[in-house]
Computed example of a mutant assay.
Amino acid sequence: MARLISILDNDFYKFTMQNAVIQLFPKVKAKYQFINRGKHKFPAGFAEILRAAIDSLATLALTKEEKSFFAENCPYIDAPYFDFLQGYRYDPDEVTITQNGGDLSVKIEGYWYRTILWEVPIMSLICELYYEVTGQKRVSDEEVVQIVESKMNKYDKLKITIADFGTRRRHSFEVHDLVIKTLCQHPSKTFIGTSNVFLAMRHATKTIGTHAHEWFMFHAAKYGYKMANLLGLEHWSDVYRGDLGIALSDTYTTEAFFKQFDKKLTKLFDGVRHDSGDAIEFAQKTIHHYASKGINPLSKTIVFSDGLDYQKVEKISSFCNGKIGYSFGIGTDFTNDVGLERMNIVLKMVETLPEDGEWTPVIKLSDEPLKHTGDPQEIEMAIRYLQLDEHA
């Protein structure tokens, strides 16, 4: 049965956010909830199987080799964090799992600095166990390699750079490991790294990532929607002082983001990440924003990461070429292209308890309205408050 073999088998931005939370918000609590967007039906007994896999994570611990790799490759993270991570253990009591027929419920609750690491491993376990328990057979290892090589040969011709962002909804660790091995052995400079820290160490490539939506969702709960992006980025720069400089733009829509992305932040951050909505429209808005601040768009980068495949990448790169810097983070099209239906699931923060505050619902307003997450009444209120008429 599926299980993780390393505490670093997680996305890099989970660790960078954890470090920042420890420094700035150590008393904050958080709740997370599994969202089954694809309405997948789970077989009887799945909750018990997932429970056993999650319980097994309590034995994971950062090894000396992993600690050395992480510290050497991330000099912008202070040494005390790696000592903390060496002593960190997953606490399965923070996770509640129930099943009603084919419907699965997963909820997480605890201090934010601890619970922040659960999302990615739980999602990857759900995917891998789902394929295992339902007896679905993937293509062979040889075919996986051929699929990856075929894609890379096409990407090479576009003269672009790409990274792997596919941990959360991968088919399995075995496939993910094989994909990264194949990407690293491919004879070009197109592939530049992976968001998965353990696989970056195993295959001697670069760790890629900065922060995720939950960073800004918390800031909205504590400081309000109109200040969430501004203070989220200010606090990020307080911790990382210019490193890890790709800003996530769509937690409360790109429209709201650029209103708060003032000249100081626009100059400080290396670029922005696109994760929902029309990519070309986003590129146009981003180019206009930089130009309006007197900044050459070619000195900045957009990292595109929204459900990419070759056709989307080709269209985006054709538009951006010569206008702005660009790169791509590709997820399940690398790690779950094995001849089976890909799972459409997420696990999101749903409430947070700021220090000296009260439990507050948190939401995400995507540039794609169908991908809004959170309490519907809170979503409507935020849309009105941010004056986002086109999303109503």
Rank of each mutant, 00 (worst) to 15 (best):
G322K: 02
G331Q: 09
I302T: 10
G325W: 03
G325L: 05
G339K: 06
K315D: 09
G357F: 12
T286S: 12
E314I: 02
V346G: 14
P354W: 09
T301C: 14
R342I: 03
P354Q: 04
G357Y: 08
N336M: 06
V338A: 05
H288T: 15
T335D: 06
I330P: 09
D333R: 00
K315Q: 12
R342Y: 00
N336W: 06
N336H: 10
K312V: 01
P297E: 04
G294Y: 00
S299H: 04
D356C: 13
E351D: 07
S318V: 07
E314N: 15
T332Q: 14
I330H: 07
F328N: 05
F319Q: 04
I345V: 11
K285I: 01
Y290G: 04
V303G: 04
Q284I: 14
I287Y: 08
G374I: 03
E341N: 11
S317M: 07
D375H: 13
T301G: 08
I287W: 04
L365G: 11
K371R: 15
V346N: 14
D306W: 13
R342T: 05
D367T: 10
T335N: 11
D306G: 02
G294I: 00
A283P: 12
H289G: 01
D306N: 14
Y310D: 10
S305G: 15
S299M: 01
K300C: 02
V313K: 07
L340T: 09
G339R: 06
K323I: 06
L353Q: 11
G357V: 07
G331M: 06
I363Q: 06
T335L: 05
H289A: 06
H372F: 13
D333S: 05
V346K: 15
K364T: 14
D333A: 07
T332P: 13
T301E: 15
E341P: 10
A283D: 11
V362L: 02
S299V: 00
F328E: 09
R342D: 00
G374P: 14
T301S: 14
E358T: 07
K371F: 10
E368K: 15
H289T: 07
